[in-house]
Design a protein around this nucleic acid. Structure first.
Length: 344
DNA sequence: CACTATGATTTAGA
DNA sequence: TCTAAATCATAGTG
C-alpha cells in the first residue's frame, strides 16, 4: 500500500492540484527542512486538521475531480505500464508453471478408479465395475464383497464430488469478490486488467493446491478400500463340501472332455453358489492337477465314478441305460484304472 | 511350524 | 477370449 500512496501523491501532483491541499507529508517535511524550521507548527497542524475536517462530500468531490481529470486515463495507463514492468522484474518469470505431475498422477488414479470420471450408471455389464478384474478376466463378479466394495466406492465418490463442488464454489466466490474489489480500486489506483488476471490465477493456484489435498486423501481412501476388499479376494476360502462335490462329479463324469460349456458353467456356478469365473478357475486347476498326477486322484476318480454309476443306475431304473452320464473315454484325459484297491 | 491342498492370478499361446 | 502351465498366497492339517 506504500506504492499506492506514492502513486497517488505523484498523480495528484501531476494532476495540477497543490500538494499542500492534499496534505502530502512529503511537502510538510520539505517545508521543515527548507527555510524556517519550526516556522509555524500551528500552520501544519491546521493543515492536518483541515484534512480531518473535510466532509465526506468534499472528499468525494475531490475524488471525482481526480477521476474526471482529462489526463487521468493516459496517466493511468502509463502508471499501469510502469507498475507492470516493476512487478515483472521483481517477481521474475516463474509464472506459467507446467501441470503438476503429482496432480496429474492423482487425477489419473481417480479416473481409473471411477471416482472422478463420468457416472458409471450401468454397472451390470462391468463397464468399470471391477478395477482389479482388468487383467483377471472375471467381469461379472457380483460377489457380496464386490457390491460392498462398490457401495463404499460410491460413497467416497459422492463425498469427493460434494467437497470438490464446495471448493469450486468457494473459489469462484472469492475470485469474484477479489475481482470486484480490484475493479473498484482500479478507479483510484493503477490496476491493469492483466494484474487482475494474474491475481485470479494466483487465487486459482491456491485453491487447486487445496484441491490436491482433497484428491490425495481421496486416493488414500480408495487405496485403503482396495486393499481391504479386493485383496481380500485373494485371501481365498475353500468352497464348501457340497460345491466341491458337484464340481468333481461333473469333472469325473466328463473326464474325456472336462470342458464345460458356458451354459454348463453357469449351471454349476448356480448349483455351487460361486461365480462362473470361479468355476472356470476350478476346472482349470483341476485339469492341470489331474493331468500332472493322475495317480493321486485315482481314489477320488473311483469314488465319483461309483457315485455317477449309482446315479445312472437310479436314473436307468426308470429309463433305458442308453445315455449313461459316465461318458466313454475318448481321448482327452487318461481315464483312471478301476482296480479294486485303488492302485494303477 | 512345515507341509499339503486349493483358489486365484499371471503369462504365453492359439 | 479361452486354456495350459506356472506361480502366488492362504487355508487346513498333523
Amino acid at each position: 500500500m506504500d506504492d499506492q500512496t506514492r502513486m497517488m501523491t505523484g498523480l495528484t501532483g501531476l494532476g495540477g492540484l497543490s500538494q499542500a491541499d492534499v496534505g502530502d507529508p512529503d511537502s510538510v517535511r520539505k517545508q521543515q527542512s527548507l527555510g524556517q524550521p519550526q516556522q509555524d507548527i500551528g500552520d501544519i497542524l491546521q493543515q492536518i486538521m483541515a484534512i480531518t475536517d473535510e466532509s465526506l462530500d468534499e472528499a468525494q468531490a475531490r475524488k471525482h475531480a481526480l477521476n474526471c481529470h482529462r489526463m487521468k486515463p493516459a496517466l493511468f495507463s502509463v502508471l499501469c505500464e510502469i507498475k507492470e514492468k516493476t512487478v515483472l522484474s521483481i517477481r521474475g518469470v516463474q509464472e506459467e508453471d507446467p501441470p503438476d505431475p503429482q496432480i496429474m498422477r492423482l487425477d489419473n488414479m481417480l479416473l481409473a478408479e471411477g471416482v472422478s470420471g463420468p457416472e458409471k450408471g450401468g454397472g451390470s455389464a462391468a463397464a468399470g465395475g471391477a478395477p482389479a478384474a482388468a487383467a483377471g478376466g472375471s467381469p461379472t463378479d457380483s460377489s457380496i464383497e464386490h457390491s460392498d466394495y462398490r457401495a463404499k466406492l460410491a460413497q467416497i465418490r459422492q463425498i469427493y464430488h460434494s467437497e470438490l463442488e464446495k471448493y469450486e464454489q468457494a473459489c469462484s466466490e472469492f475470485t469474484n469478490h477479489v475481482m470486484n474489489l480490484l475493479r473498484e480500486q482500479s478507479r483510484t489506483r493503477p490496476i491493469s486488467p492483466k494484474e487482475i488476471e494474474r491475481m485470479v490465477a494466483i487465487i486459482h493456484r491456491k485453491f487447486s493446491s487445496i484441491q490436491m489435498q482433497l484428491k490425495q486423501s481421496t486416493c488414500e481412501a480408495v487405496m485403503i478400500l482396495r486393499s481391504r476388499f479386493l485383496d481380500a479376494r485373494r485371501k481365498r476360502r475353500n468352497f464348501n463340501k457340497q460345491a466341491t462335490e458337484v464340481l468333481n462329479e461333473y469333472f469325473y463324469s466328463h473326464l474325456s472332455n472336462p470342458y464345460p460349456s458356458e451354459e454348463a458353467k453357469e449351471e454349476l456356478a448356480k448349483k455351487c453358489g460361486i461365480t462362473v469365473s470361479q468355476v472356470s478357475n476350478w476346472f482349470g486347476n483341476k485339469r492341470i492337477r489331474y493331468k500332472k498326477n493322475i495317480g493321486k486322484f485315482q481314489e477320488e476318480a473311483n469314488l465319483y465314478a461309483v457315485k455317477t454309476a449309482v446315479d445312472a443306475a437310479n436314473v436307468s431304473a426308470q429309463a433305458s441305460q442308453a445315455n449313461s452320464p459316465a461318458t466313454p473315454n475318448s481321448g482327452g484325459y487318461p481315464a483312471p484304472c478301476y482296480t479294486p484297491d485303488g492302485r494303477l
